[in-house]
Measured scan of single mutants.
Amino acid sequence: SKICLVCGDEASGCHYGVVTCGSCKVFFKRAVEGQHNYLCAGRNDCIIDKIRRKNCPACRLQKCLQAGMNLGARKS
């Protein structure tokens, strides 16, 4: 099975251009559409994995963007 390129959980498919799990898919959509201005309490290098993905939305969003997630991406 495929793994989420953001948190490493089991992926549910290709979302916004990137193979991700459902949790990261929903997080990314809400983060971008809600125009959240997340700030990292650390050094913008928090570990984002299945267990810690909820700890720092700033670093999670950064990881989504680095993976290439794009709200305008067509479903493939």
Rank of each mutant, 00 (worst) to 15 (best):
F28P: 00
G72C: 13
L5M: 05
E10Y: 06
F28Y: 07
G34S: 08
C7G: 00
E33H: 08
R74M: 12
N55R: 12
I48C: 03
T20P: 01
G13I: 05
C24T: 00
C64V: 02
K2L: 06
G13P: 04
F27G: 01
E10M: 04
C4G: 01
C40S: 00
K54C: 04
C24G: 00
L61M: 07
R53G: 10
A31P: 02
P57D: 15
Q62Y: 05
R74N: 12
G34N: 15
C4W: 00
C4H: 01
R52C: 10
C14T: 07
I48N: 12
G17R: 10
Q62K: 15
S76H: 09
F28E: 01
Q62P: 00
Y16R: 08
K2G: 04
G34Y: 13
E33M: 10
S1H: 13
E10Q: 15
S12N: 15
C46W: 00
A67M: 15
S12P: 13
Q66L: 06
K63C: 05
P57S: 10
K50N: 03
D45A: 08
G72N: 09
H36D: 13
C40D: 01
C4L: 01
G42K: 10
Y16C: 09
D49Y: 04
S12E: 15
D49N: 09
K75A: 15
L65M: 09
R30W: 03
C24P: 00
N70A: 14
I51C: 09
G22K: 09
A11K: 06
G13D: 14
R74H: 07
L65N: 09
R43V: 11
C7A: 00
G68F: 01
G34E: 12
S1E: 14
D45G: 08
N44T: 09
F27E: 00
S23M: 07
S1Y: 13
G34I: 06
H36P: 12
A67N: 07
R74W: 13
G13V: 07
H15R: 05
C14K: 06
V19G: 07
Q35N: 09
N37A: 11
M69K: 03
F27S: 02
K54T: 15
D49R: 03
P57L: 05
I3C: 04
L65F: 12
K29G: 10
K29M: 10
K63M: 08
G8C: 03
R52G: 11
N37C: 11
V6Q: 01
N55E: 07
M69E: 03
G13Y: 03
Y38Q: 06
C24R: 00
E10P: 06
S23F: 04
K54P: 08
G72F: 05
S1G: 07
C40F: 00
L65A: 10
S76E: 10
S23N: 15
I3E: 05
A11E: 12
V32W: 03
V32I: 14
G72Y: 08
Q35Y: 06
N70P: 12
S1A: 05
N37G: 09
L61H: 03
V19N: 15
C40W: 01
G34A: 06
G42M: 15
S23V: 04
L61R: 04
H36M: 10
H36K: 05
G72I: 12
Q35H: 12
V18I: 15
G22M: 11
R43K: 14
F28M: 06
